[in-house]
Amino acid sequence: MKTKFLWIEDNANTNLSYLMMPIYNSGKYDPIIALSVADGLHRLWQTEFAAVVLDIRLPPGNDPQWTKLYNLSGHNRGAAQLGLALLIALLRPQESEIDLGNRPAWLKPDKIKPERFGVLSVESEFEVTNKLEELGITVRHEKTAHTTPGTLLDMVNQIMQKTKPGGVLR
């Protein structure tokens, strides 16, 4: 059975579609794509994923809480950093202004594992790395023109390596 992983990325079907080819070619994974925060949350609530890779500058999608947060930033994805806000809401609910409500078992505060999450975004190391490290997320890649098609596959493999029994957990 293929391993399910979630990629929350609004450009997944367009600019970044090349990154999916190595995933399909590997035959190891069953990727699920979400194009917004709301869409991503919907998927997270439906299924337990072995790995979740997400962007930082995400659109809110059809959810009033996230839309409000997005509007407060002046409708600016760069300022809103909803991907980061989503990670904080999931991993540090006490620091978040978003209430995610009744969580599925694998996302309960005492069950959720930051090692399952990775970030693929255009933000430079200095913009988000410290925040991500505080959240316990170490799998991270900065999107540049040098990014290769195999990047997403590499990231998912890294997450799987870290989360498998006896894997290297930082």
Binding site: N11, T14, N15, L16, Y18, L19, R57, G74, N76, R77, G78, A79, V122, K143, T144, A145, H146, T147, P149
Partner: peptide
């Protein structure tokens, strides 16, 4: 400045797509 930053952000995405293509 934010908008400019965002446009440049989109450029990076576009450049990546061009490179991959």
């Amino acid at each position: 400045t934010y908008d400019f930053g965002n446009v440049l952000h989109d450029y990076t995405s576009t450049l990546l797509m061009v490179q991959l293509s």
